[in-house]
Computed example of a mutant assay.
Amino acid sequence: MSNTRLEQFDKAVQLREDSTDLLIQIWKEYHLYSTLEFWIMVSILVVPLLILFFKIDKSKIFLIGFYGYSVHVILAYVDIYGMNAGYWHYPFQLLPSLPSLSVDASIVPVVCMLMYQWTLNHKKNYYLYAILTAGGFALVFKPLLVGLGLFKLYGKANYIYLFVGYVLILLTAKFMTNVFLWAQKRYGPSTKQY
Rank of each mutant, 00 (worst) to 15 (best):
S2G: 05
T4M: 12
R5P: 00
E7K: 13
Q8M: 14
F9M: 10
F9D: 05
F9V: 10
D10P: 00
K11C: 00
K11W: 11
A12F: 13
V13P: 02
Q14P: 00
Q14I: 02
R16E: 15
R16F: 12
S19Q: 10
S19Y: 14
T20I: 15
L23A: 14
L23C: 11
I24C: 06
I26A: 08
I26Y: 13
K28Y: 11
K28R: 11
H31C: 03
Y33K: 07
S34W: 12
T35M: 02
T35Y: 01
L36I: 15
L36F: 15
F38K: 01
W39V: 04
M41P: 09
V42D: 05
V42R: 01
I44S: 04
I44N: 04
V46H: 08
V47D: 04
P48Y: 08
I51Q: 09
F53C: 09
F53E: 11
K55D: 13
I56F: 04
D57I: 03
K58P: 12
I61L: 09
I64K: 02
G65I: 09
Y67F: 15
S70R: 00
H72C: 15
L75C: 06
Y77L: 14
D79H: 01
G82F: 10
M83T: 11
N84F: 15
N84I: 13
G86N: 12
G86E: 14
Y87R: 07
Y87M: 08
W88P: 04
W88E: 03
Y90E: 09
Q93H: 07
L94C: 05
L94W: 11
L95Q: 06
S97L: 13
S97W: 15
L98R: 06
L98S: 09
P99A: 04
P99K: 01
S100T: 14
L101R: 00
S102G: 10
S102Q: 08
S102L: 04
V103A: 00
A105E: 10
S106E: 06
V108N: 08
V108S: 07
P109Q: 01
P109G: 02
V110N: 01
V110D: 00
V111C: 13
C112A: 15
C112I: 07
C112G: 08
M113F: 07
L114K: 05
Y116E: 04
W118Y: 10
L120C: 09
K123L: 10
Y129E: 12
A134L: 05
F137I: 13
A138W: 00
K142G: 00
P143V: 14
L145T: 08
V146S: 07
V146F: 07
G147Q: 15
L148P: 00
L148I: 05
G149R: 08
G149Q: 09
F151Y: 15
L153C: 03
G155W: 11
K156N: 10
A157T: 06
N158L: 12
Y159V: 02
F163M: 11
I169L: 02
L170S: 03
L171G: 02
A173Q: 06
A173Y: 08
F175N: 01
F175A: 07
M176S: 02
T177V: 12
T177F: 11
W182S: 02
Q184C: 04
R186N: 10
Y187G: 00
G188C: 06
P189I: 15
P189A: 13
K192E: 13
Y194T: 04
Y194V: 07
Y194I: 02
